[in-house]
Write a protein that binds this DNA or RNA. Structure first.
Length: 160
DNA sequence: GCCAACGTTGGC
DNA sequence: GCCAACGTTGGC
């Protein structure tokens, strides 16, 4: 099993939005970065664990946990929709350019973990998230980083 | 709202 | 294949 961090702007799609869905599951659409696509297409596997990160929030923070539930990569449906802001005219159903995964809500943190607390933890200085200029919206997390963050969250801090 | 750090595009 | 110009991300 692998560990990942996925960013979303809460004004656009928050962890509460995910939790509110009937099956608490969504296709992670709208990613238009090749590095992120390659991770989702080639490296993410069913059962992998995800930190759900809220970017462009005040403060930016980790909001909870999710999990990959798709067995195989899924073509991002928004690339075929001319009305979508993510429409890609160079993509086709026969040869889709943007592949993604299906993600399911697991837990929401009662208390968020702000970015500055992650940044100030000396054990987490190598995390991609706190590297200068790290904009990648889908990124790998080392197991020891995952464990350290879960320790910072604490067992009593996992809401529904 | 600013802007640094990246990523992408397209002319050559 | 280089690289300047442009667009985007995302913290601050």
């Amino acid at each position: 099993m692998k560990y990942w961090l996925m960013k979303s702007e809460p004004d656009c799609f928050s962890i509460d939005d995910l939790a509110k869905l009937p099956d608490k599951t969504t296709i992670w659409d709208g990613v238009r970065n090749y590095q992120a696509r390659n991770i989702m297409r080639d490296e993410m596997k069913k059962g992998d664990q995800i930190f759900f990160y809220h970017s462009n929030a005040k403060p930016p923070h980790l909001a909870g946990l999710a999990e990959i539930v798709s067995e195989t990569p899924i073509p991002d449906p928004t690339q075929f929709d001319p009305k979508s802001q993510y429409f890609d005219e160079k993509s086709s159903a026969e040869n889709p350019r943007w592949m993604t995964v299906k993600v399911k809500f697991k837990k929401k943190f009662k208390d968020i973990l702000p970015l500055d607390r992650i940044r100030s933890n000396p054990k987490l200085t190598n995390m991609k998230l706190v590297q200068k200029g790290a904009r990648l919206s889908v990124q790998p997390v080392e197991k020891k980083e995952w464990d350290e963050i879960m320790a910072m969250i604490g067992h009593t801090n996992l809401a529904y």
